Simulated assay, not measured.
Amino acid sequence: MSPPSHLVVIGGGVQGSSVAYFASQMAPSHRPGKITLIEANSHLAPHASGKGGGFMARSWGDGTSTEQLHHYAFDKHAELAAEWGLKTYRKLPVLSVAGEGKKGFGSMRGTPNWLDGKGAGVRSMGDGSDTAQVTPGEYVEAASSRSGATVLLNTRVVGVELSELPDGEQAVAGVEIVTADGSRSVLEADAVCLSTGPWGCMAEDWFPTISSPMEGIKSTSVTFPARETANDAVALFCNEDSRFNTHLEVYPRPDGTVYCCGVGGSDYIPAAELRQGAFLSGCDPKEARVEAATATLHAMSDAYKGIAPKSSQACMRPCAPDALPIMGPVPGVAGAFLNYAHNCWGIAWAPATGTAMAELICLGETTFDLSAFNVERFGAPAKRGGRGRKKKGEAVGEQW
Score class of each variant (00 low, 15 high):
26 M>R: 15
103 K>D: 10
155 T>P: 11
296 T>W: 12
53 G>I: 00
283 C>K: 03
163 S>V: 14
40 A>R: 15
399 Q>K: 12
59 S>W: 14
160 V>H: 00
87 K>C: 02
224 F>V: 11
337 F>Q: 10
83 E>R: 14
320 A>M: 11
99 G>Q: 08
79 E>Q: 15
238 C>N: 11
226 A>K: 13
54 G>H: 07
20 A>M: 06
94 V>T: 02
82 A>I: 04
230 A>F: 04
305 K>T: 13
225 P>I: 07
327 M>T: 05
118 K>E: 13
119 G>S: 06
19 V>Y: 12
283 C>V: 15
347 I>M: 13
151 V>R: 10
147 S>Y: 01
235 A>G: 02
272 A>T: 09
379 G>I: 03
291 E>I: 07
202 M>C: 14
35 I>M: 11
216 G>S: 03
176 E>T: 09
293 A>I: 10
234 V>Y: 00
264 G>F: 00
50 G>F: 07
286 K>C: 00
285 P>L: 07
36 T>E: 09
248 L>R: 09
393 G>M: 04
244 F>A: 02
156 R>M: 14
72 Y>L: 08
164 E>L: 12
355 T>L: 14
45 A>M: 12
372 A>G: 07
78 A>W: 02
238 C>Y: 09
371 S>F: 01
121 G>P: 04
11 G>H: 13
400 W>Y: 15
386 G>W: 00
190 D>A: 02
362 C>N: 08
393 G>F: 04
175 V>N: 03
313 Q>D: 15
217 I>D: 12
315 C>Q: 07
372 A>H: 05
353 T>V: 11
38 I>S: 07
159 G>C: 06
261 C>Y: 01
263 V>A: 06
160 V>G: 00
349 W>C: 05
40 A>I: 12
264 G>I: 02
313 Q>S: 15
149 A>H: 03
358 A>F: 15
350 A>S: 15
54 G>K: 02
20 A>G: 06
102 K>N: 10
69 L>N: 08
61 G>W: 04
33 G>W: 13
185 S>G: 10
331 P>S: 09
317 R>A: 11
124 S>D: 02
115 L>I: 08
240 E>H: 14
147 S>W: 01
91 K>D: 00
270 P>Y: 00
280 L>V: 09
178 V>S: 11
40 A>S: 15
377 R>A: 03
155 T>V: 12
19 V>G: 13
395 A>I: 11
263 V>P: 01
113 N>C: 02
367 T>W: 07
64 T>D: 08
144 S>T: 01
63 G>D: 13
1 M>N: 06
41 N>Y: 03
386 G>S: 00
44 L>W: 05
198 P>A: 15
377 R>G: 01
307 I>D: 14
58 R>Y: 11
342 H>R: 09
89 Y>K: 01
176 E>A: 08
203 A>C: 08
388 G>F: 01
202 M>R: 13
87 K>L: 05
400 W>Q: 12
52 G>F: 01
311 S>C: 07
168 G>I: 05
338 L>D: 10
247 H>D: 05
238 C>G: 08
346 G>S: 10
98 A>I: 00
244 F>E: 09
15 Q>Y: 08
59 S>M: 14
131 T>F: 06
167 D>C: 02
375 V>K: 12
61 G>P: 10
239 N>C: 06
127 D>K: 11
314 A>W: 12
1 M>T: 04
98 A>Y: 01
6 H>P: 12
273 E>Y: 00
296 T>G: 13
123 R>Y: 05
103 K>I: 03
163 S>P: 04
256 G>H: 03
